[in-house]
């Protein structure tokens, strides 16, 4: 068989076909709301963030200090053992300079790009990173390996969320 010998299906539609009413579409916006339970590990993580601290969990078998904290070690497949406070500093493992929003719309002209990064947190095991964003830095100055420190919301504004850390900024010196 060769693909070239068949008439292939799928009829392409132009973007305008919907706007001009050439095809009939039904529009629907589902209105679903969720209240996610976070479990004991992330509950404590969030409670500590509210206090301006970062907490991890340790597995006494593989001896990894894990962040985000988890009640089970996915490598050893056993419960984790201890809570361990880690630093609010770390190292940029990788980063991006992002001009699009979550829904693929573009950031407004003149707005600063998003600076998502994987940050390896000091005090956690090697390579243990979290997703967060960088701030107080020009995009072209960001480097892999850069030391960074958390910039926290004011205590009274914190709500027990990952966004209680506004962003990570470069450390001087």
């Amino acid at each position: 068989m060769e693909l070239e010998k068949f008439e292939l299906g799928a009829t392409p539609l132009k973007e305008s076909a919907m706007k001009d009413g050439k095809v009939l579409t039904l529009h629907k916006k589902p209105n679903l709301k969720y209240a996610w339970d976070n479990g004991p590990a992330i509950d404590r993580y969030l409670a500590e963030l509210k206090k301006g601290r970062i907490i991890a969990r340790k597995c006494n078998k593989c001896r990894r200090i894990m962040i985000p904290p988890r009640m089970f070690c996915e490598l050893c497949w056993r419960p984790t053992d201890e809570w361990v406070y880690v630093e609010d500093t770390g190292v940029v493992n990788t980063f991006s300079i992002c001009y699009v929003n979550w829904d693929a719309s573009r950031i407004k002209k003149g707005d600063k790009p998003h600076l998502p990064a994987v940050i390896e947190i000091d005090g956690a095991s090697d390579g243990m990173g979290i997703l967060h964003v960088l701030g107080e830095v020009e995009p072209d100055k960001v480097k892999i390996g850069m030391k960074v420190k958390a910039v926290w919301k004011k205590p009274e504004e914190r709500e027990g969320a990952i966004t209680d850390i506004l962003y990570f900024k470069p450390m001087r010196g």
């Binding site: 969720y34 996610w36 976070n38 992330i42 993580y45 969030l46 985000p68 990788t94 980063f95 991006s96 992002c98 699009v100 929003n101 979550w102 829904d103 693929a104 998003h114 998502p116 990064a117 994987v118 979290i130 997703l131 967060h132 964003v133 969320a161 990952i162 966004t163």
Partner: peptide, 18 residues
């Protein structure tokens, strides 16, 4: 992750770019 990551408004392209 709904709690530790979605609050940062990630897009799929982030993980590819990273």
């Amino acid at each position: 992750d709904h709690t530790t990551e979605q609050a940062l408004n990630p897009t799929l392209i982030w993980i590819f770019a990273l």
